[in-house]
Design a protein around this nucleic acid. Structure first.
Length: 863
RNA sequence: GCGGACGUGGCGAAACCGGUAGACGCAGCGGACUUAAAAUCCGUUUUCCUCGGAAGUGGGGGUUCGAGUCCCCCCGUCCGCACCA
C-alpha cells in the first residue's frame, strides 16, 4: 500500500518529503529552463536580485514569492518564461565583515551566496538556475569595464572634482548612512567634506528623454513615475549675470522667478562657490562659516534640515534693471553648488526660504506679486511668503502683468541687455561612479605622468580585483597593495599607476537584467539577438526604496548601451511592481533592550512577558523587520516548520503586494491550516471521484450551482493574477474551497463537479503553492505534472447569472433588496421597488419626487 | 526642509467607472466530536440602542438622487533625498 492514496489519508500532509520530492522532479525535468519554446511568446519576469548578506529575510521571501507566482502563471498561460536569479555581490557589508571579523570579502560573499542559494531553493522558486550570475566575479564585471571604456569613447564619461564625506581617523570616504550626527559611525570623528577627483557618467545628457519616456511606462506605478519626474526636476527659468560694485568679476545666478526681480533683497552663493573660497582668504569669519558648512555632511537632507544661515560678504551686486540699486551678497548654507550655477537671488516676499533668511538678517521684504482681490496699498507679507499667481506691482515695466507674462518680459529684457538667457535647468546631476572602496569593480584606467589618463586596452580586461589584501590599515586596501597599482603605461610604457577607485555598486545592477539573456558568454556582455528577444523585462518586481536611483540608473544605462550598439531597446523594464515591506511588532524588556519575537510569550490576561524569565515586556508598534530592532522572523525556520507553500501563501494572502505586510504567528498558522485542509479534501475524496477526463453527467441544481461557482472562480482568479491582486485570488480560492467542502460525492453529478472543482483548485493554487498543487494533482490521478499543464479556462456560459439582487434606497438609505431578472425593464424595477413594505413605510405616505434606476444595481426613491 | 505615498470592525483586508460598506482570513464567543487535550467541523461576530431602528470608512467642509470612492482644508503614520543596497 505504500505510496497509494489510501496510505496517505491517515497521515497529515508531509511537507518535507513532498516539497523536496517536487523540487527535485522539477529540476531533473528542466521545467524552468528558459528559451526552450522559441515559437511561444516570451515573458521575462525579474525580481530585484539580492545582496548576499548570508541569510534570506522575509522581504526576500515576499519579493521572490510574488515573482514566482507571475512566472508560474505565465508558463501555464503558454509563455516561454525567462525567470533568472543572481547576486548583487559587491558592496560595503563585505568590507565591514572583513574589518570587524577578519573574513576576506570574497570568501565571506561566496559563502553567503552558497547559503542563500540553498535557502532560495527550499522555497521552490521556478528559477532557471543555469543563468545565475554573481557580480563580484571577473566573468561578470569584465564586461562593465568594457562598457565604461565604450561610454568613455562615446563621450558619456568625464572626470571632475566632487565633494565627499571624509573620516579623518579611518582615512576613508563615508557613505551618508555612515555619517551619524556629523560623525563617522565607527570612529566617532567629526566628518569633513573633501574635494576628490572622480568619474562621472553623463546621465544629464539623457535628462530630457528620461523624463519624456516616463509617459510610455504605462505599467509602472504612478507614484514611481512621479518620483522620477521630481528627481529629474526640469525647471524653466533664466540665467542672469549680475555686476559687482567695485569688482571686475560678475556673478551668474539661475532663477525660475525672473518676474520677481524687483522684489530682490539679496544674492546668495554656495559655500562651495569659487567666489566664496576666494573671499574667505581675506575674511576669517567667512572662512570659519565655510568650514562649518563643510562639517555638515553631503546629504541633501542634512543641508535642507539645517538652520538657514549666511554670512554677508560685504560685496554689493548691482540690480540689472534699476541703476544704482545695490544688493548685499551672502554666502548661505542652503545654496547648493551642484544646482544651477551655485548662486541665487533672494526674493523674500515670494519664497519661503528667502523670507526666513530675510527675517533672520533684517533684509527688506517687498511684495511684487499681488494676490487676486488684494489691495496694492495695503497688501503685506507676514510670516508666509506668497508663491501663487497674481498681478505684478512695484515692478517698473512689468507692472500690471500676470506672472507668466512677467517672466517672459523679464527674460526678454535680460536677453536684450545681453545679461543672460532663457534656460532649462535640471535638478538631476551627473552620476558620480567612483568609490574609494575595495570590494567593487576596478575602474579600468591608468594614470601616467606623461600621458595623463589612459584607458586600459580592451585586450587587457578584465582588470582583476586582487584578493591578497589586508584590512588592518585604515584607507583603501587597493591603495596599500604592494604591487597591484604599479603598471606600465599602455601608451608610453613608462611606470604608471592604476586607478584604485572602484565602481559604485549601482553599476552592476544597471545591466544585470541584460546579462541574464546570455549569462555564459565570455566574449560579449550579452548576445545582441538574445537581448533583442528577451528585453525589455516584462515584469520587474522589487522594493519601493529603489523607485528613483536603481531604476533611473538602469534606464540611463539602457540608453547608453543602445548608443554604443549593445542593444536595441530604450527601456529596461516595461512593467514594474513595487512591493511593500514586511513588518512585525516590536518588543522591549524592562531595561529597554529590544527582544526577538521568540523571546516573548503571552502571560496572564494575554499580556506579553519574557518567555524564560516571565518579566513584563513592553509591546511596541509594528515596524519594518530589522536586525537592529530584533523584530525579525527567520524564513529558514518558518520553511523548516511549515514548508515553503505555507510561507508563500501567507506572503500572498492578507495584504495586496504594494502595501506593507504584517507578519503574525496567527497568520502563518492560518495559512498552514489551509494547506492541510486542501490536502485533506483531495486525499479524503480522490478515490470516490470519477476517473480523470470522464464525460459530464446530467447535472442537478446543486451540482450546477457548484459548477458555476468553480468557473466563476477560475475567471476571477485569472483576472486577479493578471492584475497582481494576489490577496484577492487567495480569498476567491478559499471561497471555492468552502463551497467544495459542503458537497458530498454521493451522486454521480456531484462527484463529477467535485472532481472538476478540486482539479481547478490544484491548477489555480499552483502558482502560489506549487508543491501542494502537484501533490493534489497527482492524487487526483494525473500523470503529467502541473508545471506542464495549461492554465484552466472558464466556460463563458457558466459566468452569466440570470437574476440579480438589486438594492432599494429611499433618499439614499437602504430599505430593501429585490431579486430581478438580469437586465430587467427599469419600469419593472421601479414598480417592484415601490411595492416593498419597508420602502412604503420609509416614504411615510409622501409621493416619490424622483426615482433613479441603475439597471442591475440600485433603485433610489427620492421623496 | 523638499518630494512621494498611505489611513475602512479587536486585527490583515474587500468593495470594478460614484450605486447593498466589511467578501476572504485572523482573533474572540457559543456548540459538536473527545475521558481530556490537540486537530477538525458547525454557528456567531462593525458599534450603539428602547430590537424598530440609528450611527459608521483618520477629522472638518463641499459636489451629487446617492461619496470609502470626486473636490477643498486639517491631523497622523511611513518611504526617498544622489557613497546602504
Amino acid at each position: 500500500m505504500t505510496g497509494t492514496i489510501m496510505s496517505r489519508i491517515d497521515d497529515r500532509y508531509n511537507v518535507k518529503d513532498t516539497e523536496a520530492r517536487w523540487q527535485q522532479a522539477w529540476e531533473q525535468g528542466g521545467a524552468f529552463v528558459a528559451g526552450r519554446h522559441p515559437a511561444r511568446p516570451k515573458y521575462y519576469v525579474l525580481e530585484m536580485f539580492p545582496y548576499p548578506s548570508g541569510r534570506i529575510h522575509m522581504g526576500h521571501v515576499r519579493n521572490y514569492t510574488l515573482g514566482d507566482v507571475v512566472a508560474r502563471y505565465k508558463r501555464a498561460k503558454g509563455f516561454d518564461v525567462l525567470h533568472p536569479m543572481g547576486w548583487d555581490a559587491f558592496g560595503l557589508p563585505a568590507e565591514n565583515a572583513a574589518i570587524e571579523r577578519g573574513v576576506h570579502p570574497a570568501k565571506w560573499t561566496r559563502e553567503n551566496i552558497a547559503a542563500m542559494r540553498e535557502q532560495l531553493k527550499s522555497m521552490g522558486l521556478s528559477y532557471d538556475w543555469g543563468r545565475e550570475v554573481a557580480t563580484c566575479e571577473p566573468d561578470y564585471y569584465r564586461h562593465e569595464q568594457k562598457m565604461f571604456l565604450d561610454f568613455l569613447k562615446a563621450g558619456l564619461v568625464y572626470r571632475k572634482e566632487s565633494w565627499v564625506n571624509w573620516d579623518p581617523v579611518e582615512n576613508t570616504v563615508l557613505a551618508n548612512e555612515q555619517v551619524i550626527d556629523g560623525r563617522g559611525w565607527r570612529s566617532g570623528a567629526l566628518v569633513e567634506k573633501r574635494l576628490l577627483a572622480q568619474w562621472f557618467l553623463k546621465i544629464t545628457d539623457f535628462a530630457e528623454d528620461l523624463l519624456a519616456a516616463l509617459g510610455s511606462l504605462e505599467r509602472w506605478p504612478d507614484r514611481v513615475r512621479l518620483m522620477q519626474e521630481n528627481w529629474i526636476g526640469r525647471s524653466e527659468g533664466a540665467r542672469l549675470v549680475w555686476d559687482l560694485a567695485g569688482r571686475p568679476e560678475t556673478l551668474e545666478i539661475f532663477t525660475t522667478r525672473p518676474d520677481t526681480l524687483f522684489g530682490a533683497a539679496f544674492l546668495a552663493i554656495s559655500p562651495n562657490h569659487p567666489l566664496a573660497a576666494e573671499l574667505a582668504e581675506a575674511n576669517p569669519a567667512l572662512a570659519e562659516f565655510i568650514a562649518e558648512c563643510n562639517r555638515m555632511g553631503t546629504s541633501e537632507a542634512a543641508l535642507e534640515t539645517a538652520e538657514k544661515k549666511g554670512v554677508d560678504t560685504g560685496l554689493k551686486a548691482l540690480h540689472p534693471f534699476v541703476p544704482g540699486w545695490e544688493l548685499p551678497v551672502y554666502v548661505a548654507n542652503f545654496v547648493l553648488m551642484e544646482y544651477g550655477s551655485g548662486a541665487i537671488f533672494g526674493c523674500p516676499a515670494h519664497d519661503q526660504r528667502d523670507l526666513d533668511f530675510a527675517r533672520k538678517y533684517g533684509l527688506p521684504v517687498k511684495p511684487v506679486v499681488l494676490p487676486p482681490g488684494e489691495n496694492p496699498a495695503t497688501f503685506q507679507v507676514g510670516a508666509e511668503a506668497y508663491s501663487e499667481g497674481g498681478t505684478l506691482f512695484n515692478s517698473g515695466f512689468m507692472d500690471g502683468m500676470g506672472v507668466d507674462d512677467a517672466k517672459a518680459a523679464a527674460i526678454a529684457r535680460i536677453e536684450a541687455d545681453g545679461r543672460g538667457a532663457r534656460t532649462v535647468n535640471w535638478r538631476l546631476r551627473d552620476w558620480g561612479v567612483s568609490r574609494q572602496r575595495y570590494w567593487g569593480c576596478p575602474i579600468p584606467i591608468i594614470h601616467c605622468e606623461s600621458c595623463g589618463v589612459v584607458p586600459v586596452p580592451a585586450a587587457d580586461l578584465p582588470v582583476r580585483l586582487p584578493e591578497d589584501v589586508g584590512f588592518d590599515k585604515p584607507g583603501n586596501p587597493l591603495d596599500h597593495h604592494p604591487t597591484w597599482k604599479h603598471v606600465a603605461c599602455p601608451a608610453c610604457g613608462k611606470p604608471a599607476r592604476r586607478e584604485t577607485d572602484t565602481f559604485d555598486t549601482f553599476f552592476e545592477s544597471s545591466w544585470y537584467f541584460a546579462r541574464f539573456c546570455s549569462p555564459t558568454r565570455d566574449d560579449v556582455a550579452f548576445d545582441r539577438a538574445e537581448a533583442d528577444r528577451w528585453l525589455p523585462v516584462d515584469q520587474y518586481i522589487g522594493g519601493i526604496e529603489h523607485a528613483v536611483l536603481h531604476l533611473l540608473y538602469s534606464r540611463f544605462f539602457t540608453r547608453a548601451l543602445k548608443t554604443c550598439g549593445y542593444l536595441g531597446v530604450d527601456e529596461p523594464f516595461a512593467g514594474l511592481l513595487t512591493q511593500g515591506m514586511v513588518c512585525h511588532e516590536t518588543y522591549k524588556d524592562q531595561a529597554g533592550a529590544w527582544l526577538y519575537p521568540d523571546e516573548v510569550t503571552r502571560g496572564e490576561g494575554g499580556r506579553p512577558v519574557h518567555a524564560s524569565t516571565g518579566a513584563p515586556v513592553t509591546l511596541g508598534r509594528s515596524e519594518k523587520m530589522s536586525k537592529s530592532k530584533r523584530n525579525v522572523v527567520d524564513p529558514a525556520h518558518i520553511i523548516a516548520t511549515y514548508g515553503a507553500d505555507t510561507a508563500r501563501l501567507f506572503m500572498l494572502s492578507d495584504s495586496p503586494p504594494e502595501r506593507d505586510l504584517e507578519w503574525t504567528e496567527a497568520g502563518i498558522d492560518g495559512a498552514w491550516r489551509y494547506v492541510n485542509r486542501l490536502w485533506r479534501m483531495v486525499a479524503g475524496t480522490a478515490d470516490t471521484l470519477p476517473a480523470p477526463g470522464s464525460a459530464m453527467p446530467e447535472l442537478g441544481d446543486e451540482a450546477l450551482k457548484l459548477r458555476r461557482l468553480v468557473h466563476k472562480t477560475v475567471a476571477a482568479i485569472t483576472d486577479d493574477l493578471e492584475k497582481f491582486h494576489f490577496n484577492k485570488a487567495v480569498a476567491r480560492l478559499r471561497e471555492m474551497t468552502n463551497a467544495l467542502g459542503e458537497v458530498s460525492a454521493d451522486a454521480p453529478d456531484r462527484a463529477w463537479v467535485l472532481r472538476e472543482g478540486l482539479e481547478a483548485a490544484a491548477l489555480l493554487a499552483a502558482p502560489m503553492m506549487p508543491h501542494l498543487a502537484e501533490e493534489m494533482w497527482a492524487a487526483l490521478g494525473h500523470a503529467v505534472p502541473v508545471v506542464h499543464t495549461p492554465w484552466p479556462v472558464a466556460e463563458a456560459a457558466l459566468l452569466v447569472e440570470d437574476s440579480v439582487t438589486v438594492a432599494v434606497q429611499v433618499n439614499g438609505k437602504l430599505r430593501a433588496t429585490i431579486e430581478l431578472p438580469k437586465d430587467a425593464d427599469p419600469k419593472l424595477a421601479e414598480e417592484t421597488a415601490l411595492a416593498q413594505p419597508p420602502v412604503i413605510a420609509a416614504m411615510s405616505g409622501k409621493p416619490p419626487r424622483k426615482v433613479v434606476v441603475v439597471p442591475n444595481r440600485i433603485v433610489n426613491v427620492v421623496v
